[in-house]
């Protein structure tokens, strides 16, 4: 598994996670359109694709093929490693 910390260290990748949290199951096209129209991020499609690869390697994004389409889903379970290491306040 890739490095969760490195995956989270980039603002574009964090924006991708924000958008996937709002709606799971996005195509590359939808992710790109949201980054441009809602975040003013003008990353190329290729750059966004590479960001998604980093997020997938860290386990934060999962891809699924459905017929001829490819969708991206958010998976926050790798974030547990952070709170396991530095625990949240108990109250």
């Amino acid at each position: 598994m890739g490095d969760v910390f490195k995956a989270l260290a980039d603002p574009t990748r964090r924006a991708i996670l924000d958008e996937l949290q709002e709606r799971n199951g996005q195509t590359l096209f939808e992710v790109c359109t949201r980054l441009i129209s809602r975040h003013g991020l003008t990353s190329s499609r290729q750059a966004v694709s590479q960001h998604l690869d980093v997020l997938e390697a860290a386990g934060l994004v999962r891809t699924r093929r459905e017929g001829r389409y490819k969708f991206h889903d958010l998976d926050t379970s790798p974030l547990r490693a952070i709170t396991d290491r530095w625990q949240l306040p108990t109250d």
């Binding site: 996005q26 195509t27 001829r68 490819k70």
Partner: peptide
């Protein structure tokens, strides 16, 4: 097919 796979209209 390449356009459809990436969701590009």
């Amino acid at each position: 097919e390449a356009l459809v796979a990436d969701g590009i209209p």
